Computed example of a mutant assay.
Amino acid sequence: MIEFQQVGKSFHGQAVVDDFSLAIAPGEFVVLIGRSGSGKSTTLKMVNRLVEHDRGRILFAGQEIRAFQPEDLRRRMGYAIQSTGLFPHWTVERNIACVPELLKWPAARIRDRVTELLELLQLPPDVYRRRYPHELSGGQQQRVGVARALAADPDVLLMDEPFGALDPITREALQLEMRRIHRLSGKTIVLVTHDIEEALRLGSRVVLLDHGRIVQAGTPRQLLAEPASDLVRDFIGRADLGLRLLALDTVASRMRPGPIEPNNAPALRDTDSLREALSTLIARGTSQLPVADATGTLCGLLHLSDLVQPSA
C-alpha cells in the first residue's frame, strides 16, 4: 500500500529523515513513535506530499507519489491532526461533508455518509448533526475530525498526534474507538505519537525512530520481549516491560476454565487485560478471582501465579 525506499529529507542542510525504508501493507495499523525531533511527523507528511521528500522513493498503490497531483493524492488519504482543524462557522455535518462535496457526491449520498460516520463514532446524528464545534467537548471535536478524515472513504488514514491534547480518560476512550474503527473498516492507518502506551495499545506494528532512522520495527510484543538496543529499552521503560507485556494479553488467555460456584467476590471480565487483572488482585488483597464472560456467566478462575507464566 505504502512503501518508503531509502527516503531522505533535510531542512537547512540538516537531515531530518535519513535512509528511511519501510513497507506498509494494506490493512495495517502502523504507529511511528520517537522523541521530539526524531522525524516521525515529517515522515507522515511526506506520504501525502505536505512535505516533499528530497531523496529516495515513496510508493502509494505501486506508483511513486509524485506521479499523482497533490490534491488527488490527498483525496485518497484521510488526514487527522491534534487540533482537529474544524471550521468554526460550519456545522458538524458540513465539516464532515466538505471533502465529499469537493468530489461532487450526490447530496443524498453525502447525508447518508455523515449519518453513518456519526453513528460509527458514537455521536447520535439527530443530536450532533447541526451543532457547531464550539458546542462540542474536546473529545467530541476530535471524533468529528476523525469522521471528516474518513468521509470520502479514503484508502489510507494518516493521524498526527490526534489525541495529544486530550485528558487521559477521553484519550483512552478514543484510542479504544480507533481500535474498533480499524477492526470494522480494515483501513490502512499510519499514526504518529510520542506516547509509548498509545503506540503499544493501537499498533499492529510499531516503528521507533531516532534522528530520522528506524531503530526497531515490529509488533508490540516483539518490541517488549526483544528490544533491539538499550535505546529501545529506555524508550519503552525498563521498569515497565513486564507490566506492558501483561497489557497485551487478556484474562481469557490465562484463566483456569471450569464451573465456578457463585460467591460475593466481584468477577474479572474475560476481556480484561492481564495488567488490569493484576491491579484488581492487588487492590482487593487476594490471590485469585472468578472470571465472567460477556453474558456475566462465571467461566473460570484467575490466580495471581497465572500472571507470571509465559504466554503461549
Rank of each mutant, 00 (worst) to 15 (best):
V144P: 04
P124F: 07
D306I: 06
L50H: 01
A199T: 11
I169H: 04
K104S: 13
L120Y: 03
A149F: 03
I2L: 13
A165N: 14
G203M: 10
H303Y: 12
G139F: 04
V144G: 03
L278Q: 13
L191E: 02
V291E: 02
V215C: 00
I260Q: 15
R205M: 07
A149L: 08
V51P: 00
L123D: 11
L117V: 08
G203E: 12
M178V: 14
L157N: 07
L123G: 09
S287C: 02
K104E: 15
M77E: 07
M46F: 04
H134N: 15
G37D: 05
T115H: 15
S10M: 03
L302D: 01
G203R: 12
H194D: 09
L302W: 04
M159T: 11
I189E: 03
I58S: 11
Y132I: 04
A294S: 14
L44W: 01
E198I: 12
V206N: 02
T297Y: 01
G212Y: 07
E177R: 04
Q140H: 01
L118R: 09
A277M: 02
R254P: 11
M46Y: 03
I169A: 04
L102K: 10
P26L: 08
V215W: 00
I169T: 08
E135H: 08
R269T: 06
R256L: 13
D19S: 15
S38P: 10
E71A: 13
L223V: 04
V144N: 08
M159L: 15
D234A: 10
A165G: 09
G300C: 10
G27N: 05
A173P: 01
T271H: 10
R143C: 10
L289P: 05
H182P: 11
G78Y: 01
L44I: 01
D18V: 00
S38Y: 00
I58E: 10
L243G: 08
D210K: 15
R244Q: 12
T280P: 02
E198Y: 12
L136V: 00
H134P: 00
H134Q: 14
Y79V: 02
F4K: 08
V251N: 07
L117S: 07
E177L: 13
L241C: 08
A15E: 13
G285R: 15
Q140N: 06
Y79D: 05
K9G: 08
R183W: 02
E197S: 13
E276G: 07
R201Y: 10
P168C: 05
I81F: 09
V127R: 12
T297K: 14
T43D: 06
P133M: 03
G258L: 13
V308R: 13
L174E: 05
R275S: 15
A97R: 03
E198G: 09
D195W: 03
P125G: 09
V156E: 05
Y79A: 05
G139L: 11
A80K: 03
A67W: 00
G186A: 03
L245C: 09
V251R: 00
L208S: 01
A277S: 09
T250M: 04
